[in-house]
Amino acid sequence: MRLLLVEDNVDVAETLVGYLQRQGFVVDVAATLAIARHAMRDGSFDLILLDRMLPDGDGVSLMGFAEQIGRPQRFIVLTAMAGIDDRIAGLEGGATDYVVKPFEPRELLARIRTALRHPLDAPAQVRVFGPLRHDVDHGQFFIDDQPLVLRRGEALVLEALMARPGMLVQREALELRVYGYDKSVNTNSLESQISRLRGHLARLTDQVRIQSIRGLGYRLSDR
C-alpha cells in the first residue's frame, strides 16, 4: 500500500514515515500543497494523510483538487485544528477521517486500515501503449497479456512513462517519482533503473522501447 504524507513539520514527517514503513507501507512525503498536487497528478496513492496548516495554504483544498483532476482519493486529516467547525470543514470537504494532533501512532494505524477498506468510486484505469498494458488500480503491467514482473523502482519509472505515452518525461520528474521528494539521488541511480527496465522490455517485445532524450529525460517509443 502506498501513502502520501502531506506534512511540513520535518520531525513529525520523519517519525510517521519511519513508523508506517515498519508497518509495511510505502510512504512519500510532500511538504507543501504544490508538491502534493504534483504528486497526485503523477502518482497513484491508496490514501493521503493530510495536514491542514501548510506553508502555501489549507490542506483541505487538496480534496477539491482530487475531484478537479478526476482522481477520487481517500484522505485522513492529521492536524492540530481541533475545533468542531474545523472537524466539520474537514469531513464535509471529503475526508474519510479527522485525527487531531498529538495522536497515538497505533490509533492512526487502525484508522488507516479502516479507511483503506472504504471503496473508491472510480472506474478501472488501464493505460495501453502498443502491446504494453498498465492496470493502474492494481499496479500491474502486461505485455500481450503476459505479466511483466518488475521491482518497485522499475515499476515507478514505467508507471510515469505510461502516464505520458510517447511524450517526454523529464529526468527530474522521474527521480521525484521513484525516489520521493525528500531524498538525495545518486546520478547513476535512475540510469540503473532504466537499464534494467529496458532489459525486461527487450526480453518480451521489440515493439516498445525507452528512448533517451539527451539532457532532458526519457520517453516510451514504438520504433
Rank of each mutant, 00 (worst) to 15 (best):
D86H: 13
R37M: 06
I88N: 11
Q211V: 11
G93L: 12
R171V: 00
V149L: 12
R177K: 09
G180H: 01
E172V: 00
L5E: 07
H38E: 15
K101D: 01
D135Q: 08
E191R: 12
L4V: 03
A155E: 10
T79W: 06
V149N: 00
E191D: 12
R52H: 09
M40G: 07
G43R: 05
V12N: 06
L150D: 00
E191S: 13
R203C: 03
R71D: 14
P102I: 06
G18S: 06
A39D: 04
I210G: 12
H200G: 12
D144Y: 05
L161W: 13
V149D: 03
I76W: 08
L120P: 13
P105F: 05
G94N: 02
G139Y: 15
G83A: 10
Q211D: 12
G83K: 02
I112C: 11
Q73A: 10
G90I: 04
L91S: 07
E14T: 00
A124R: 08
R22G: 10
L158Y: 01
V10T: 08
S212H: 09
S221C: 08
Y179D: 00
V60D: 05
M167S: 15
E67Y: 06
V126N: 04
P165L: 11
G24Y: 07
Q73K: 06
N9E: 15
G139V: 08
A89H: 13
H134D: 03
I69G: 07
D144T: 13
P55V: 01
V169Y: 04
E172F: 07
L49E: 03
G166R: 15
G215W: 11
R71M: 11
A82R: 02
L108F: 02
A115R: 09
G215R: 02
L156E: 15
D11L: 13
R196K: 09
R203E: 15
L150Y: 14
T15A: 15
R196M: 12
V10N: 07
R106H: 11
R113D: 14
D28K: 10
I213C: 12
Q146V: 15
D46I: 01
D222Y: 08
R87Y: 02
V100P: 08
R113P: 08
G59N: 03
Q68G: 00
S189Y: 05
Q21E: 15
A202N: 14
P147W: 00
T205H: 11
G18D: 14
V6K: 03
F141T: 11
L4M: 02
F103L: 02
L168P: 02
R52W: 09
G59L: 02
L108V: 02
V178F: 10
L204H: 12
V17K: 15
L216Y: 09
L148F: 06
A110Y: 12
P147H: 04
A202P: 03
I143T: 03
A66F: 07
G59V: 00
G215E: 04
V77H: 09
D182E: 15
G215M: 11
L62H: 08
I143M: 04
V60Q: 09
A160E: 13
H138Y: 10
A95T: 01
D137P: 10
